[in-house]
Design a protein around this nucleic acid. Structure first.
Lengths: 150, 150
DNA sequence: GTTACTGCAAAAAGTTTGCAGCGCC
DNA sequence: GGCGCTGCAAACTTTTTGCAGTAAC
């Protein structure tokens, strides 16, 4: 969720696209606004039940799909499966902690633009997009892993 | 599969790691050596049956896991699901056609190295790796799409 | 002769769909 | 009041696991 938006703004923008405002959708939006980590779908579901106990998994899937299509959340490919995290403002890429899945965003490398142009002329491909992620361990997790806990 | 390796070389390297040479594994290796596209697991399975008709899906999964761990094949995240393609030699990244899933590899952007160092000092993350892919349409598919088909 | 490997089938995990009732606009 | 949305359950897809027979070394 663009971290510069609040609950009302997101719901309003959804409304502009014809999506009704419901307690279930509000719950999912709250969850995504309130996380600094990439979440698996079942984690989104669990957290959403705090705001709307009777929400179902299907609704979570459907709402995440809407939010993704509107550009409010994004998928991250972390190891085994994919996770969702709020889309930050600007053209940035995620740096994901492989242990706690906290996401740190960094500014898009502007060399990718020229690389894209270069690739298009070299290969004849018509490029539609790219995927850039870094993986590692955040300072906190790194310390804890060194401490033998792992 | 590293395109500069042949069947014997791959099987030999697997043997070095203690993996036995079997018809099923040979079939999967042949499939991966013979593709220029990223394949879904069921596509690998279908093609493998040409070499070894009684092969099972479970064996395909198990063999792809071995090949991935040894670095002979890689996953690509293309839209809906992930696909496997042979690891090319050198440090390169995939440019994937969204229609036919042909993979064109390009040389790793060396600016990523300095970006990594920059990110580590900025964020405190200990970076383990990165994921860079471009998506688009190859010239052939682009022409066919313009032609009104699709 | 051992032990790793296989194919099969069943289980598990992840995701989508159908639908009747509810509640948003 | 109409229709979009929901939760539930069932279906479906993808991946993993258990196991007894088979074959590689």
């Amino acid at each position: 969720m663009s971290i510069n938006l609040n609950l009302e703004e997101v719901l309003e923008r959804m409304a502009h696209h014809g999506w009704r405002r419901t307690p279930a959708r509000e719950a999912v939006v709250r969850v995504m606004l309130g996380t600094d980590r990439a979440l698996q779908v079942h984690e989104v579901y669990q957290r959403a039940t705090r705001y709307h106990p009777r929400i179902g998994m299907a609704t979570v899937y459907r709402t995440l799909e809407i939010l993704e299509n509107l550009g409010f959340v994004q998928k991250v490919h972390a190891g085994e499966c994919h996770r969702y995290y709020p889309t930050p403002p600007g053209h940035v890429h995620p740096l994901v902690c492989l242990r706690c899945f906290r996401v740190q965003n960094f500014a898009g490398d502007n060399s990718l633009g020229s690389l894209k142009a270069h690739l298009e002329s070299q290969t004849g491909f018509h490029i539609q997009g790219h995927l850039l992620q870094f993986f590692g361990y955040c300072e906190t997790c790194w310390q804890e892993m060194q401490g033998g806990a792992e």
